[in-house]
């Protein structure tokens, strides 16, 4: 009896040990980033006075100088104005791309779930396929189309691209959500005299808040974190933050300034981390329902 209990508590200890070690593994890069961003270069390189410092030792003389530099004075290619303007590029791009793709997805999901028509499942399947294509397959023609539309290299151009490839995801979210709303609600509204749009705006929209949060979070993180489209289609003035961050870190001339690199990475990471912390529940639901049908 006692040995059985011993074994059980040993097993529990082992479970906790694995979980805590994993937590350390997942937290380590974040800690290293934050610590490094608050250190001076001598402290990072272990110069005199800092011989025993590692990437995981807390900063001895914490300073936000590197954050300031990353924000407004670090050199990216030839311009030494920091990430600031790119940050606002990203914000502008995200706001419009998210708003448009989420609204379109909501309407699409409404039609595909509540106004079934012949072949609607094929249409849905065709949209769904768009979630999975490797974007490399569309890069060349898209560059051309943006040129034809005269929005090549601009933020509207990037918004357009993100809307096109966001629609499949937002449609999937809303369709799977509206499928769970009883059809009788729509039938009742039709008998009560409501039409296509009044049903959507008066009956369904007021109860769609949860899925809006999911879709907005998903699109926000997706567009904010995008690199491929930004690198392929953005001109010098329209570059989003991720492209600028990569340029800052990987094309710097002279000695690497790790503290500024890490501060830049943190600046780029903070908005989505914040969304994750505030809306974690919805974030997870988005991740999983983006992958599995609802």
């Amino acid at each position: 009896m006692a040995t059985a209990r011993n074994r059980a508590s040993f097993e529990r200890g082992f479970v906790y040990l694995v979980l805590l070690l994993s937590a350390a593994f997942f937290l380590m890069p974040l800690i290293a980033m934050i610590f490094t961003s608050l250190k001076s270069m001598p402290e990072i390189t272990g110069a005199a006075g800092f011989e025993n410092n590692t990437i995981l030792t807390p900063p001895k003389e914490p300073s936000v100088a590197a954050w300031g530099a990353a924000w407004s004075s670090a050199c990216i290619a030839v311009a030494c104005e920091g990430l600031r303007s790119y940050f606002w590029n990203s914000v502008l791009m995200v706001v419009f791309a998210v708003a448009i793709s989420v609204m379109l997805g909501a309407v699409n999901g409404y039609v595909l779930s509540k106004w079934r028509f012949r072949g609607d499942n094929i249409v849905f399947g065709m949209l769904l396929f768009g979630c999975f294509i490797p974007f490399q397959i569309v890069l060349i023609p898209m560059a051309r189309l943006l040129g034809i539309l005269d929005i090549a290299g601009t933020i509207p151009g990037l918004v357009f691209v993100h809307v096109c490839y966001g629609i499949p995801f937002t449609t999937l979210f809303f369709r799977n959500f509206y499928v769970t709303i009883p059809d009788e609600l729509v039938k009742a509204a039709r008998i009560d005299g409501a039409g296509f749009w009044s049903i959507f705006f008066l009956i369904l929209l007021p109860i769609s808040t949860p899925i809006f949060v999911v879709a907005i979070i998903w699109q926000f993180t997706g567009v904010w974190n995008d690199f491929l489209f930004g690198a392929s289609f953005a001109g010098a003035d329209a570059r989003p933050l991720m492209v600028a961050l990569n340029n800052l870190v990987n094309t710097s001339t002279g000695t690497k300034t790790y503290n500024i690199d890490m501060a830049g990475a943190m600046i780029a990471a903070l908005p989505t981390m914040l969304v994750y912390i505030v809306g974690g529940r919805y974030f997870v639901r988005g991740l999983t329902s983006g992958a599995v049908k609802g």
């Binding site: 009883p182 009788e184 609600l185 039938k187 009742a188 509204a189 009956i203 007021p206």
Partner: peptide, 8 residues
């Protein structure tokens, strides 16, 4: 309706 279909 069977489910009453009240607008939530």
């Amino acid at each position: 309706f069977q489910s009453y279909a009240l607008y939530p």
